[in-house]
Nucleic acid binder design. Structure first.
Lengths: 224, 224
DNA sequence: ACAATAGTGTCTCTTAGACATTATCAG
DNA sequence: CTGATAATGTCTAAGAGACACTATTGT
């Protein structure tokens, strides 16, 4: 390697980990208290330094598994958001932060990490408040337009009611069911089945089931 | 700095530099033959290694001024696209490439660099063919939605005909003038004036002039 | 029957797309 | 006047948004 070393910039990967809590009917963001200084004990996005030759996706999974305690197989999809480059964003020295998103399957979760509702994320270490604020519209924009993201968040099968809940969590307002149904009808690879899920314990008409025809999970393109 | 050095990944910045050629009625991409190995002599996107603590925008300007010979004040706007992380994309070793866009004012250009029409970019060094292919839709998507990008490309004032040319170059098909006019009417900060520009030497009705009310150039947000 | 939840038909308004027509220049 | 270029009125189709109404459950 003939390239400079000392002068090269460090690269970290910070992950906005999303999980849909069907019972609470909201999308949660994974945050973990920092183990080390700086900001020891304060909540932060899970992040790691990118290893030499490491893929962004691999580093992201390393962050999510290591700092959130999520099993690797629970990570259903990942993708890239944007890069933050303020030299002073890390007190240890100039460090690039490449923000990624990841979706996890709630069924495969151990307990332990902290999950905060997307509205109501606590104050975070570093510039992570800004990262969350800047990236939130990008996440909302991905819903129903990025199949890997949507499938990763909602799972292989889901009901119309869950789709409504996720949409409300991400975009901030709840669509009319008929309109969301039309939107979903136009999503490639998503199919409206004739099945109905079980009704809620409180009663009410059982909701319809939607299913991905292709395997939309396990894509999570990073870097294209 | 307590962070690892040898193991840190190198970061380069590669710039898709766009310039509108009003006479040729197309958008051109700046490419420069590489001075050094690898790929010496082959055309490539202008790129530099990111310095420690350097902002992405500054590195991008360094690449454009250094490798394309464009004056710094000719760079009207810059922004971020996406990051490419294949470890083998640079034969010298694993190097991240953060793709940026930059727009330059054609009036402030020296000659020398090579400009290729967006359709008809030659084969480029490294994985730059793929970078161009992947980023082109992102550029088309920015037009009329990112005021800094659009103003950077078209300048402070421009005609409807030029807007049609730029749209055709970026998106691949030419909108109907009436429809593009309605699109532009809805762009915040863009105003339809009553002035007409000079007609072409060949004759024809003189086109209308559009003007940015706010100073939309010189924004070029990178990293937000 | 009633409360709770979900699905659907349909009306309106906005936007996108497509032309045909009209307007203004040089020669 | 003719050829060239540009602007605009308008028709149609598609999509977004908003409700009202119907359907299916548990108690």
């Amino acid at each position: 390697m003939d390239a400079p070393r000392i002068e090269s910039t460090l690269v970290s990967v910070d992950v906005l980990t999303l999980r849909f809590d069907a019972r609470a009917r909201t999308v949660l963001l994974g945050v973990a208290p920092r183990a080390l200084d700086p900001f020891a004990g304060e909540p932060a996005l899970p992040g790691v330094l990118l290893g030499r030759g490491e893929r962004l996706r691999d580093a992201g999974i390393r962050a999510v598994t290591g700092k959130l305690g999520v099993a690797e197989r629970a990570v259903t999809a990942t993708g890239q958001l944007t890069t933050f480059d303020e030299p002073s964003r890390d007190p240890r020295g100039p460090t690039l932060s490449i923000a990624l998103w990841a979706t996890v399957d709630p069924a495969l979760l151990d307990d332990g990490p902290t999950w905060a509702p997307l509205d109501g994320v606590p104050h975070l270490a570093f510039d992570h408040d800004r990262i969350v604020a800047d990236c939130r519209p990008m996440l909302a924009d991905r819903l129903w337009r990025d199949a890997a993201f949507t499938a990763g968040l909602l799972g292989r099968e889901f009901t119309t009611a869950q789709a409504l809940d996720v949409t409300e969590s991400l975009t901030g307002d709840r669509p009319y069911p008929a309109n969301l149904g039309r939107t979903m009808d136009r999503v490639p690879g998503l199919e409206r089945t004739a099945q109905h899920a079980a009704a809620l314990p409180k009663g009410g008409r059982p909701p319809l089931v939607w299913r991905w025809t292709r395997d939309e999970a396990a894509q999570g393109s990073v870097g294209r």
